[in-house]
Design a protein around this nucleic acid. Structure first.
Lengths: 193, 193
DNA sequence: GGCAATATGGAGACACTCTCCGTCTTGTCC
DNA sequence: GGACAAGACGGAGAGTGTCTCCATATTGCC
């Protein structure tokens, strides 16, 4: 009797893991400086690996972005827990959460666009992350609605997109911070009762 | 005494004007089908001119876009006049105007992005168009504020960006129409008193 | 008709994405 | 520790796009 097939996939080789992590580190820095549209080949070169290596680990820009964001998820998740525990009321919690989302989406210049695309055209490595945050948004929203502080017709998905839009308006290098703040305020007035 | 320098620039040659118009027509169609990120060389080829000809008339994508939008300005301007004349109250007029702007920004897939960029980083051929519409937005907004139906702290620029954002959320091929409508409603709740 | 001013086309320099495959590493089994 | 297969590597190069340059062609005016 042959070895039982416990795990279909073998653990990745040590050099592969090393390279993957290293690329991720360089990409984080590179996207921070050049925005999400920066050259992938440049990232490979800067990481000291061939283009093929980069593309094997991350078949396209979205996959790389998704891997990068997973590392940042923790921050947003712990922010969520903070808001759950420490908020005086559900409306403030929801507002705080949306602020956090919009800040998260501003991690790299140009990030809101692929995130928006991922929420509408599902099969994207970014979609899972987005979907998770939409679910969280829904929790906060429902709490606020039960509390009577949020309009009933508002949907979580729309609030998530509004937070993305806020970040989008800010544009490159925090170009229009005032307008982003104004949009956030507008949004809150929009859903709050 | 030499000829007085009345107009510094000569009128363009007939062939130049013909080519320019023709390129514009093809570009309109091409961008409608492929979005604003479509290939410029492809437009040149389809128009039956060399790449150089296209780039001489329109040094970059933004210039071409700006020329294209000027042709569409009329529609928005006449919509503005309609709203001025036919609206029952200033709040409805402002809401109608913002809807019109957001529809205008959805003329081509991907158009909201360059428009947004043009409102923040000034030296862009699109900036004049945007600035004009922001001014119009301000007129409608001030009327609504005087009427007591719009919050005082809201700025015209922010509403214009909100309309752009609404269009942006809709994304390619009207992918998320419901969310765009929701965002528009959210925005109205946001500024209205 | 002839001449200067203008406009044209398309080859080609350069940048970017992504694939393919000959070569090199790793881990495993003896 | 050696050997062998699975797995990973790099970088050349195909494909696509932007934009420039300039020898050649077209216009409009005298």
């Amino acid at each position: 009797m042959p070895k039982i097939e416990t795990s279909r996939v073998r653990a990745p080789r040590a050099d592969a893991r090393r390279n993957r992590d290293h690329i991720l580190g360089i990409a984080e820095q590179y996207f921070s400086e050049h925005g999400v549209a920066g050259s992938l080949d440049a990232i490979a070169k800067q990481a000291g690996v061939g283009a093929g290596t980069l593309y094997r680990h991350f078949p396209n820009r979205e996959a790389l972005l998704a891997a990068l964001l997973i590392a940042r998820d923790d921050a947003l998740v712990s922010r969520r827990d903070d808001l759950r525990n420490r908020s005086e009321n559900a409306a403030d919690a929801l507002a705080g959460w949306l602020d956090a989302v919009s800040e998260w989406a501003g991690a790299f210049d140009g990030l809101p666009e692929p995130l928006r695309a991922a929420t509408t055209t599902s099969p994207s490595p970014l979609a899972v992350t987005c979907q998770g945050f939409i679910t969280t948004t829904d929790e906060f929203l429902q709490a606020a609605q039960n509390e009577g502080s949020a309009r009933g017709e508002v949907r979580a998905r729309d609030l998530f997109l509004a937070a993305l839009a806020t970040s989008w308006v800010r544009g490159a290098a925090m170009a229009d911070d005032a307008s982003a703040a104004a949009l956030a305020a507008l949004t809150r007035n929009g859903w709050e009762l």
